[in-house]
Design a protein around this nucleic acid. Structure first.
Lengths: 115, 115
DNA sequence: TGCGCATATAAGCATATGCCTATATACTAA
DNA sequence: TTAGTATATAGGCATATGCTTATATGCGCA
């Protein structure tokens, strides 16, 4: 049984910096329970599509989230293989559920389902 | 038995943003085990005293750390009453111990002890 | 009182961040 | 192929951040 390597301060700081933005942190909290695509986030945050894409890209670039294309949509989810995944999870679990955003999406008929 | 209020996303994001800086994150990891003063951090990080003071101030301003004056020194420590204390602790526990910095300080005769 | 050390604050500067608009690329379906 | 939708990228701009040097303040002690 080999102990898991401790996360380096550098890598943790990079991840925490990304989590230190309200928009991204909310995205991550949502992704804890539901995969989402960029166009859904655009609805939820009422923000331009490029802004959302840039937030998503930063998180994807360090491996914090991963993407999976479903036809015309790209669904994003938390990446369990991310080195700081345990840290991310432990933080997100302390935050309030963000299901109301999803419910709003559904009510507006904007929720994307890829099954 | 009343459940502890969940941290708001806003407050968590503020705390995480501060933790997302390598210098501050290292300071916090050190403070997990040892109280420290500004002049010790100046030695440890080999950085100007005002830089250190500013990092410390930001963390003090949101209540993440607290100070206690001992004569000419002001010792800083983690604030257990901080609303995001559980989150801070859970992150810091995943990071490697930073005792080598303290040992270096002691070897240089620069460790401040206030007992 | 006055000096020395610790800390805080002010001001300036280079870089990073987060947002926007405009445009390019990728996929679907007619 | 062409139109429509989803996403990415480029470029620009205002603000935030982190560092520096210079200076002010606070405390201990002769």
């Amino acid at each position: 049984m080999i102990a898991k390597e401790a996360l380096t301060i550098d890598k943790a700081a990079m991840a925490l910096k990304l989590m230190g933005d309200k928009t991204r942190l909310t995205m991550l909290r949502i992704l804890t329970d539901h995969d989402c695509c960029v166009c859904e986030f655009v609805e939820i945050f009422n923000m331009s599509q490029p802004s959302i894409s840039q937030h998503v890209r930063k998180m994807k670039d360090i491996g914090m989230i991963k993407e999976k294309r479903h036809g015309q949509w790209i669904m994003y989810s938390l990446n369990e293989d991310f080195e700081g995944y345990d840290m991310v999870k432990s933080v997100l679990h302390l935050l309030p559920v963000q299901d109301h955003h999803l419910e709003e999406l559904i009510q507006k008929g904007k929720r994307i389902s890829c099954d």
